[in-house]
Nucleic acid binder design. Sequence first.
DNA 1: ATCTATATGTTATAGCGTAACAAATCTGAT
DNA 2: ATCAGATTTGTTACGCTATAACATATAGAT
Lengths: 133, 133
Amino acid sequence: MTEAAADLTRNQALVYGALEKTGTPMSAYTILDELRDDGFRAPLQVYRALDKLVEQGLVHRLESLNAFVACRHASCHRGGFIAFAICDTCGQVSEFSDDALSRRLSGWAGKHSFKPSKTTIEIRGLCAGCSNA
Amino acid sequence: MTEAAADLTRNQALVYGALEKTGTPMSAYTILDELRDDGFRAPLQVYRALDKLVEQGLVHRLESLNAFVACRHASCHRGGFIAFAICDTCGQVSEFSDDALSRRLSGWAGKHSFKPSKTTIEIRGLCAGCSNA
DNA sequence: ATCTATATGTTATAGCGTAACAAATCTGAT
DNA sequence: ATCAGATTTGTTACGCTATAACATATAGAT
Ligand SMILES: [Zn+2]
Ligand SMILES: [Zn+2]
Ligand SMILES: [Zn+2]
Ligand SMILES: [Zn+2]
């Protein structure tokens, strides 16, 4: 567990720990199985913890995977939208945030009077390592 | 049914028709219910049709909604990535494709030797009409 | 002590998606 | 016409993802 995981409840800390230890995306049910020995019994225990962790930005939800991944950045919410590149072979996730990209999307929204609440940018494909294999 | 729906099988045409008639995103199960009177009985009948329709670009899958929407563009696959703005109140979906955006994402991929296969860009929020209400 | 708010536990259920197998239909040969 | 292969369709059963509803426990404030 790096730093950011301050004042987490027991369940939140366990879920965050599982995600961080694994490093790649996990489904809520995989997390549940991982935490059976720690007393977890029902999906809701996982989902509730995930809700808070996502809210705090410690964990990201990957929509195209229906899965969750621990954030690697110290603080990845400097305003801009976050993009994810997800390798379909090894599961590795790279987060990046591009100002030009964010401006482009915000620009479209502004021009069309659309008020964004949540933005998803996910590139599925093969990472450098896996495309050489 | 506009034009593009050429050489679709019966099931594909029915699913596409349902999506086009509704105009907003529909889940596979909603489509199924809509098509009971046409003889649909099982989810797979819908999913199989959707697979083909998505493959042909007539329908888009919205990852953040686990739902599907009929494409409004005559041909929206001129190479660039497609972005979707989805109103959480009225369900209206606006598709747009921005060259600068596409270049930006392709640029990141190139620089990191990441080979994209599928890209998801979805902005959830409120459309102009709904934020005035 | 009591009250309030938040976190947890537990059961049941709803919603999304596919595996596996069978039957029908369509196609393009001979 | 008919046969073989491919594609489409039908059907059952199942697995994965997510939440509703209700009960209990815990922590802090007065
Ligand atoms: Zn992050
Ligand atoms: Zn990889
Ligand atoms: Zn389109
Ligand atoms: Zn709207």
